[in-house]
Amino acid sequence: MQMFINALATAAILAPAAVAFTLIFTLFRYANFAAGGFVTVGAFAAWTLNAPLGLPLWAGGVGAMGVCAGAVALSDRVVFRPLRGRSGGTLLLVSIALSFVIENIIRFCFGAQVKGFDLPLTGPMVFAGLRVPKETVWVISISLIATLAVGALLTFTPIGRALRAVADNASLANVRGLPVPGVEAFGVIVAGALFGLSGTLVGVDLAIDPNLNWAIAIPVIAAAIVGGLGSPLGAAIGAVVIGLAEELTAAHFSPTYKGAVGFVVIALVLLLRPQGLLGTKVERK
């Protein structure tokens, strides 16, 4: 049970970013490996607002979502849009190169020193022998609300329905009179804000340093793939699966192999469901 709480806490950090990764994948059909880079941008943005500028953490978080939305929109405009129509592999290579550029820009500006939010460290609350840190309660609730909100946004609002239509078939949506570029821009901004949220949550839980990039990219992508790359709900469930798998590995096997968990899970999923992971085949030609 304690392990389940811990897994949920890990999942709560990964979930918003995994949802964002899924959103970009369904809209543009490429795996954006710069996900870890954007989360790191979010963590540093929140830190800059919180520690040196002295704003409260919630304001830092909102600021981070804004900064990340801007960064993702900018990268889409400058890097990815001119490459629409190239193969998934090419875009993946570009996104890996981009994540290196982002990581090193952060290192260039902030140095490699470890940073932490201006938050007092306190002990856990104890319920029936279960230890629940106060921050964990916050992290899980905020993450859950954000994921549900994005899910509701996609399911019930007109813009959400338009987004799904564009993701399904952009040319058909265009023919039907939907403003495709506008809808895509909206999707990109939502994804960016989610990356920023993940970045803030990471900062609450971990030390903030430029190396976060790869450490966070792998589990986020693994969660999205496990979830089927189709729906936000899937990505959130994927995050829980990855969180549990990591906790189990660390508890019963060896913590040093935790880094491989994401990949092993991806390999297993691909072995068992090679037809496309979400049950239905993704058209990619």
């Binding site: 806490a9 890990t10 990964l14 839980d205 990591e246 906790e247 913590p255 040093t256 935790k258 880094g259």
Partner: peptide
């Protein structure tokens, strides 16, 4: 003795152990 990889997303499991 407990050894872990640096640069992880979460050290909760290590702390738990």
């Amino acid at each position: 003795p407990l050894y872990y990889n640096p640069n992880q997303v979460s050290y909760r499991a290590e702390a738990e152990r």
